[in-house]
Write a protein that binds this DNA or RNA. Sequence first.
DNA 1: AGCAAAACCGTACCGACGGTACAGGAGCGG
DNA 2: CCGCTCCTGTACCGTCGGTACGGTTTTGCT
Lengths: 210, 210
Amino acid sequence: MRKGEETRTRILDVAEAAVLQKGFGGTSIEELIAETGITKSGFFYHFRDKNELAKALLNRYIENDERIYDEIFSRARDLMDDPLQSFLLGLKLLSELLSDLPNGHPGCLVATICYYERLFDREIQEINRQAALTWRRRFRGMFDEIFAVYTPREQFDVDQLADMVSTVIEGGIVLSKALKEPQSLPGQILVFRSFVKLLFQPVQQARAAS
Amino acid sequence: MRKGEETRTRILDVAEAAVLQKGFGGTSIEELIAETGITKSGFFYHFRDKNELAKALLNRYIENDERIYDEIFSRARDLMDDPLQSFLLGLKLLSELLSDLPNGHPGCLVATICYYERLFDREIQEINRQAALTWRRRFRGMFDEIFAVYTPREQFDVDQLADMVSTVIEGGIVLSKALKEPQSLPGQILVFRSFVKLLFQPVQQARAAS
DNA sequence: AGCAAAACCGTACCGACGGTACAGGAGCGG
DNA sequence: CCGCTCCTGTACCGTCGGTACGGTTTTGCT
């Protein structure tokens, strides 16, 4: 039982790296079992087919993603009392975290699946959609708190504003990968951070705020 | 010669739609020739292998992409004399264009290839990189013009600011696809537009500007 | 220690797919 | 009629996803 989980995890580790580099279609099962050191039978013991592998991979990725967001923004919440300052700090911490990845962000599985939709069943597409909706709720909650304290210089739909966080991250990953400039992603996040700062900056003076 | 080009174009049309829905690995050549109505030999007469198909596909996509950008922003330039107003109008036109697509944006080939990098040769990755750099130059030029007239409320690296346009578009496409909300992408572009407006808005009053 | 379930391995096989090779033919301009 | 472009047809190869199924080791539990 313990052993089984370990092997399963090892398969998922190998698969995740491969899928992020070559996509699902470009990742062969035979290649996975070769690297994992198990046989084909062993693989199909753990996953009925490639679709189930994708599902497990996606669920694990999303879980981990949420954990990281939780850590970063709860730490930011601990350090800053003000919701705006806390959010801005969170973005900074996120940017720093991504900046420290030696080879840049490996890629987002949610995005990978977006560009593969027709290959997977509705269930996986729905998991993907829920992940994006969870991101929206998370950041919407933060913006709601900010709006309770600050008056923005311009009116926005809060959901769209919340989605902007995910948009910048996903887009930043794509651009970073295309340009082969790992530092582009953290940079884009900081640009967005400045925009948010600008949005809630009091009209009069341009000081205050980190 | 004319006939050959026509067939080649038809293959590319079918391939582009398929690749954007299922990725390169998920698109089989046999499926392409079935839909195009030619034989396998016919296909390999036009393209030596899948890699060359990808290259042709990408080049055509980028060309078309550039054409659309040219049209939109040169039209905006004709309608507005001020570089900022012209840029803001361009973003609005872009948003409207994307909003009118019945099934939403089909996806960006540059992004598709990003998530497939290891499958293609360096040449394709370089074409992809150059495309992103061309976007950067395009928007950087616009921001340079704006900076010559306006003083921003916050200092930015101009390249990073220029990249933000591509980031928002690429990220918006991913989010739109993940959420299955076609209107998300044009919405995100408008949010970004507001941010740009905000950035160059004079400190005193919040009127003026579109 | 003994037993059952879990966690594999080995082998054989299938159809689909990417790709190669090569022979040939239709249509067309010169 | 030649030669070129633009294909078709056929045959074949290796890889891959997936199935089937029997056998074996490992593990946890009593």
